[in-house]
Amino acid sequence: MPVDTHQHVALVTGASSGIGLATALRLQQAGLVVYGAARRVDRMQQLTDAGVHVVAMDVTDDASATAGVERVLAEHGRIDVLVNNAGYGSYGAVEDVPIDEARRQFEVNVFGAARLAQLVLPGMRARRSGTIVNISSMGGRITTPFGAWYHGTKFALEAVSDCLRLETAPFGIDVVVVEPGGIRTEWSGIAAEHLRATSGRGAYAERANAVATSFDSETMARRSSPPELIAATIARAVTARRPRTRYAVGFGAKPLIALRRLLPDRAWDALILRATA
């Protein structure tokens, strides 16, 4: 296949559902060549039908991540946009979550994103252009009970992104953090399942089950924003001449981040404990 050196190329991870799926479709509609990567390629027919290239990729497997990036480079010669969206929420009390599961949370949410950045950066530096979008969360700026390992990964991703932005700015590369609030995706169901399995019995059971039920509630679903809102934000960022460093979007994101910045720790703790009782 001849190498296309003109049309911009995007790689979106976690593209089998939710924000990743919506983002891959939105970027394709914006005129980019889009590769959607995920472990569950059997769920990506919608992307194939829309003209998005589908890539099987496990971001925690270095051989898989490397092969995926090499395929894009072989077919199009460049990756101009990387959207690190792959991730999940592992919930449970710190006392209860096995350390191996905590490590896996970091492997997926932090190290997988960092490794992909390493793989695409040489080409971006050579062209002196490119955009890396790291999907964090309002949970990268605020904390709630039973989310220690999830919040830990998102706080870490924010810090990695800030350092990466400083390092790559001289090469014309933008690093953007997107901080979604409540979004209608599979995330809340997976987090509730993890929480019940980990802390649904024992010392933390009463509050843990209450929090898990709130994740699954119709009220949560009604108050959540559609993933297309995040996709539109990402598209705006990657097509901007000078994108913002952070975009807080979706239900609750801006007010909760602002409130956390204003409140002392004890006042925030009291607010969250009342809300999760």
Rank of each mutant, 00 (worst) to 15 (best):
A169I: 04
I135D: 00
R103G: 07
W149L: 10
L121W: 03
I142R: 01
V120H: 00
T131C: 02
E158H: 03
S136F: 04
G89F: 04
T143K: 02
V94Y: 14
N109D: 11
G147C: 08
A169W: 11
F171M: 13
V83I: 15
A159R: 09
L119H: 02
F146N: 10
V97K: 07
V110W: 11
S129F: 00
A126Y: 03
N84C: 13
G140E: 03
E158T: 11
F155D: 09
S90R: 15
I135P: 00
A117T: 10
I135S: 02
S137E: 03
S137L: 03
A148L: 11
R103I: 10
R141Q: 09
A126V: 04
G112F: 05
G92P: 03
P145V: 06
V97S: 13
V108W: 10
L116H: 08
L157Y: 04
I173A: 09
G123P: 06
R115G: 00
R125Y: 07
G140I: 03
S137M: 08
F106H: 06
I99D: 06
G139M: 08
F111G: 08
T153F: 07
V108P: 13
Q105H: 12
Y88V: 14
C163M: 10
G172Q: 12
R104D: 11
W149Y: 13
G140N: 04
G92V: 11
Y91R: 13
H151M: 06
V94A: 15
V133E: 05
L121M: 11
L157M: 14
G140S: 03
K154M: 14
F106V: 09
I99H: 10
R141L: 08
